[in-house]
């Protein structure tokens, strides 16, 4: 079976500055192969090069070097788009069209009968929950509604490979669940889904495999569990201190305080020592929970000291 997406040494330099153009490498020799039927998560902090990769694959910008093939056809070959769907980042569509008209416009680029078009548009509008707003002009759409119509146009022609750039962004909790359902549905139908995201639980839940991109460079590829198992498991202890008593000196550095509550995170091996210290300080233990190691930890480790600030913001994006 041929691979759905083969990316080979894809590199993109942006040129900055007006007079003296300085190149800035946004994507550096990305090589990846994604099999048909896979749901593939493309992870990375802001500015990692995710959108750049997707725009390159869609032919919206051109690579400095390297190339890619989708379903065996080079990305320069427009016929490849018959079998490909794309949801851009923060999608925006024609103000003057209604959702139904937009989908009809886009559907006309495929060999579909009028009857078939109408049927598909109806069902896809239903799927993304826009049936009631189908005849409203897009200028009156909210951000989340635009995201939904963007999803609708990406899957309208039943493509074999779907590219989604941050499909959950701007969606409310219900919308996120619906989007997840759509992706799982696509997977059930045997389609390939390649999506970028910051939201790690989504990636863990949906993806067969994930790739992590930082600063334009690929950091690792594997199943979510594979990547997670790198991490040492740890535990979180929540507690309160009675008035007048102080934190045991050993825990002073590790603890973070929120109101009256303290939180420490310790490796499994040191748990009893920590509890011992807390008991001596007459702390009231509220909970001890096992931290399921997540991609997030992997992420934090990869990003390292300098980019820690970024990474923390990213972790805040979780549901």
């Amino acid at each position: 079976m041929q691979a759905a997406i083969e990316i080979d040494g894809l590199t993109k330099d942006y040129y900055l500055g007006f007079w003296r153009k300085r190149p800035r490498r946004a994507l550096d020799g990305l090589t990846l192969t994604i099999e048909e039927g896979e749901v593939f998560g493309f992870l990375g902090p802001n500015g990692a090069g995710k959108t750049t990769t997707l725009k390159l694959l869609m032919g919206l910008i051109f690579p400095t070097s390297g190339g890619a093939r989708i379903l065996g056809r080079a990305i320069e070959d427009v016929s490849m788009h018959h079998d490909v769907g794309y949801l851009p980042e923060q999608p925006y569509f024609y103000d003057y069209l209604t959702a139904r008209e937009l989908l009809d416009y886009f559907a006309r680029f495929f060999r579909l009968s009028a009857e078939e078009r109408r049927r598909r548009i109806g069902s896809v509008l239903d799927l993304v929950g826009l049936s009631s707003a189908a005849d409203v002009q897009l200028r009156r759409y909210s951000k989340g509604m635009l995201q939904r119509i963007g999803m609708a146009q990406a899957i309208l022609h039943q493509p074999r490979v779907v590219f989604l750039d941050e499909p959950m962004s701007g969606l409310d909790p219900v919308g996120r669940r619906e989007a997840r359902d759509i992706i799982l549905d696509l997977k059930r139908q045997g389609r390939t889904v390649f999506f970028s995201t910051h939201i790690l639980p989504d990636a863990e839940m949906l993806c067969d495999r994930v790739a992590v991109l930082v600063g334009g460079k690929l950091q690792g590829v594997g199943s979510p569990e594979q990547i997670v198992s790198i991490e040492v498991e740890s535990l979180e202890v929540l507690f309160e201190l009675p008035a007048g008593s102080a934190l045991p000196p050993a825990l002073e550095d590790a603890a973070t305080q929120t109101g009256a509550r303290y939180r420490i995170q310790v490796p499994e091996a040191q748990l009893y020592d920590a509890l011992e210290g807390l008991r001596a300080a007459r702390a009231r233990i509220i909970s001890v929970s096992q931290l399921k190691p997540t991609l997030e930890d992997f992420f934090l480790r990869l990003v390292g000291g300098e980019q820690r600030k970024h990474a923390v913001e990213i972790s805040g994006g979780g549901l």
Binding site: F62, G67, R73, A74, E76, D77, V78
Partner: peptide
């Protein structure tokens, strides 16, 4: 090469 599409 298909690259020629642009160059064409």
């Amino acid at each position: 090469m298909k690259q020629s599409g642009r160059k064409r």
